[in-house]
Nucleic acid binder design. Sequence first.
RNA 1: GGGGCUAUGGUCUAGUUGGUUAUGACGUCGCCCUUACACGGCGAAGGUCCCCGGUUCAAAUCCGGGUGGCCCCACCA
Length: 759
Amino acid sequence: MPDPKLKEKRWSQSFEKDLFSKWQSEKLYSKDKLKEGQVFVVDTPPPYPSGRWHVGGALHFCQIDMIARYWRMSRQNVWFPIGIDRNGLPIESRVEKDFSIKAHEVPRGEFLVKCRRTLDKYEKNISNIMNMTGLSVDWSNVYRTDSPEYRTLTQSTFIELWNNGLIYEDTKPNNWCPGCKTTLADAEVEYRTQKGKLIYVNFPLKDGGNIQIATTRPELLGACQAITVHPSGSKYSNLAGKTAIVPLYDKEISIIARDDTNPEVGTGAMMVCSYGDQEDVKVFRELNLIETIIIDQGGKMNELAGSYKGMTTKDAKAAVIKDLEAKGFVEKTESVDQNIPICWRSKDDIELISLPEYYLKQVEFVDKMRELTDDITFHPPKFKQLLLDWLGSISQDWPISRRRFYGTPVPLFICEDHGKFAPEPGVYYEAWDMKLKCTQCDKMCEGDTRVLDTWMDSSVSPLWVSGYKQNDEFFKRSFPVFLRPQGKDIVRTWLNYSLLRVYQMTGKKAFEHVWISGHVVDKEGKKMSKSLGNVVYPEPLVEKFGADTLRYYGAAEAKLGSDIRASEERIAGSAKFIQKLYNVSKFISMFDDSKAVKLEPVDAWIMGELAKLSSRSIRGYEDMDVFVPANEIRNFVWDIFASHYIEMVKGRAYEGDKSARYTLHAALRTILKLLAPITPFITDYVYRELYGKTIHLENFDKLEVGENLPTSDLIKFNESVWAKKKEAGISLRDEIKLKVPEILKTYEKDLIRMHNLRQ
RNA sequence: GGGGCUAUGGUCUAGUUGGUUAUGACGUCGCCCUUACACGGCGAAGGUCCCCGGUUCAAAUCCGGGUGGCCCCACCA
């Protein structure tokens, strides 16, 4: 048996580290390597370092890397940048937790330093995992959204929009998180279901009698300004125009007829308080009622709540119910399921409070956004609907200011005489900590103390990575961005806001393609979370199985758009394939490569099958679903190439047959290249050992698709011979008397030898 | 309340425009160290393709209804 060129007995993940440092020192993925002409930019999601990454984050980026690697081998000029998203609430709540402090209670500068250091710490964890898993990263070009340069871009876009009137300030009721003490956008609101109490309260009428109201928010009684009833459909319709008295507060309010009060719901009469829900907001605005805010910014009752002052809303609710019951106002109490709006970060209950905030116009852009989506290819197509659903639900402009600290400062300054003004764009303004001369007088003016919603930063990432306002020449070659890959959970935020912002700045769609993946969940299909204790971390898995195994698992486990259930058992299964690939390579490495010659029939057959494999795999890659090539290649390598072709051709290969040796190597090169985006380590290892250069700068082979291939007949025949020998109780190398069927006559020579057939 | 997605052997998963005995993996059970590989080879068992109805010569695949799961939206006071 000839000596294999591949010396190692088996593939070991310990070879991976070496290869990764080679890639880095050879600058394989460097931005400088880009050539003239169009650049295919991947708007890689900048991960947020506010905690340890679980295996889902790692697999998500591996998949994105596979796509980027495919396009790099296929279209060459691919820019795959890595950024880190570092602004906003997540890091602030992390720091508040880690240091047991409240952001509002420590000096701002000190708090910012703590945030930055904590970000650095968690960022290391992420970059470490990115390196371990073999991402094709150019670390010399990493960007951070909290850098002065990036924040300058965010501020420049803000200033331009402000000057164009697309950003305005207004005071309107908004989602308020009492824990974070800031306004939130609708996209930052989540919902929690809970059992609540529906209280039926009798409101006395001024003229005698009662009107009954069902409410889940009795603590808001003090802010009650009206009662509405349907004008005709309700038993209370005839009370419209009368006056009722608010229990406990002895305040007179009117009963008003409104078409949109559903007579079927509750008692048919609704109390309107500022603010229980969005419906209250609407009624207040339309009826011009005077707003009474009885919950303060910390989520506690204020003096307008009377004797309940200082209580949390929860305590106040209990106290109010008790008092109502004591005084005989309560008719009955029912238990109901409620959907409570909560903060995406702190999970505190959200209250509706009005404060002056800055808004970016989005309502008037919704139709345009819809139009843009028609010109973008979604992978998988079905997830386009996620975006359309969200667009359909947009009913108000985007509040973009946050009363927080670690974010891009609102770049506005306030002149006592001339009002607010925006400075010149193109420079970074730490507005809360500086003064600027008014544009119309000599006064030095204070800057706004608020910061921008994080999504104001991350939504311009497509502009940043394509060189907008930094490098006009590069921007021309790379915009619109070729691909936006992201998870389905941030469609309503990152995707939606990016399309909006980029359209507002450029008048164009941000992306040609959008790739949206499912989640990685635990083995029962549940979301991973620390509180459930079901979090799987990637580092031990990489150490145990290697990056290629984990990556292959991430590609082959589920079709694009489906969730992946993390399972160590199944990762172990992927390791087997990596090992199989190594063994096949090692076998072929026993033989010298050979020039193309006239191929023997069996060799021509496998080249035809290889061409089919190649075209199917590439079709999968072009659809950006790595599931397809991963499984196609596996099935081919294992079930056709190794089991049948290699067995058939072995004899000739040992004898030095040129056709066999050429075909073995040609097939191996094609297989390795097709697999290189998914398993970049083992493919590069073998390619370098056997062919003397890196695989990652190669192109895919163009092969002629074979037709009328005898594949199924060959497989069937081989299986029948194996079965017969087994039945006869003889070894596979023993001779057997068997005729090669007519249809396989062309392959007779190799078949006779493979099975030791006696004719 | 509305909408979307989904439902395939013990577990996970494929199935392009409907077409002969439904894919593969993991696991299970036999037999085998056959000159790349025992993290292997060969073989086997295991499925009413969620349920009901319809279209069709023909449906896991299309249509309608139902049930379960996941997700999104919404003003149930």
